[in-house]
Design a protein around this nucleic acid. Structure first.
Lengths: 153, 153
DNA sequence: TATTGTTATACTCTATAACTATA
DNA sequence: TATAGTTATAGAGTATAACAATA
């Protein structure tokens, strides 16, 4: 060998501050972490975050139009079709012709859907309680919500 | 018509608290909003968030191995290849054989990449300053970081 | 004409398996 | 044997265009 120039790589860690001390980056990492744990917590239900939101939203607002649910969740009409197709095939929700507008579908939970929502709510309550504790209690959770809301346009 | 039962749909808004007052949901919405604005701010550079992170990270840690960059950013080796292929084709980065390990690629910025990073840093500084202001100043930003960090495993 | 739901399609992001060359 | 980089591929999530039925 000639000399030590270009020898073994340094085993030191990368310097990441420039990349890491950025609101968007921190938000993304936090969100990915929470969603990863959500997926694990709801694995037995085979339920994704968006599906949880849809079911709970229908439970609270039965009979409202398909597009209303899609819009409030920020999901495109076209993609929402696929999402609720899966929930309908599982027997959790029902499409009925909307009263007063035969173009529209009114969404309802089935009895099985009702029972299912009761169960996933419990799992969600436990899941959320763990995160409220992680963040330091309900006041800190509210502080987080307040800060996150300020980021919105 | 028979009667008013099932008449015109109520034009009231959906009740969303159950869906909305949830840490994961709020994080997701905030992150999507910030990334949407990032995309707009960096449109002239044709640069995605992950690409920004990679370039700044290479600028700070030139010569480190490809896999080291991928790991610290939470990107899979296989997907990282495509990402840096694009940056290499644009003439912003260079793969060199790593000193001491001929299997590995050491990543460097090209001179063009250096100049490019200087420009995108400026855009990012302006972008970040807007969000620091939105959130209520640097102390509030730090508070947000602290709360977000508590969500991580 | 406009809107609701739908299909088709494409692009990004992410995840896994398998190969090669080096170690 | 194990690791670094690569290729191929498949699954989500997301975006747009176009069509039928109805308003």
């Amino acid at each position: 060998m000639a000399d030590e120039t270009g020898g073994a790589a340094p085993e030191t860690q990368l310097q990441t501050e420039d990349t890491t001390d950025v609101i968007g980056y921190r938000l993304r990492r936090a969100q990915l972490s929470v969603f990863k744990n959500f997926k694990a917590a709801f694995e037995a239900f085979d339920l994704r975050p968006a599906e949880y939101s849809v079911l709970v939203l229908i439970a609270k607002n039965p009979g409202r139009k398909q597009t209303e649910f899609a819009e409030v969740l920020g999901i495109k009409r076209a993609n929402f079709v696929t999402l609720i197709n899966r929930l309908e095939k599982r027997g959790l929700i029902e499409r009925r012709v909307a009263a007063g507008d035969r173009r529209a579908n009114a969404l309802h939970l089935t009895p099985a859907g009702d029972a299912f929502v009761a169960r996933i709510r419990k799992t969600q309550d436990t899941f959320e309680a763990q995160y409220i504790e992680k963040v330091g209690g309900i006041e800190q959770r509210d502080a987080l919500f307040s800060l996150l809301d300020r980021l919105l346009d």
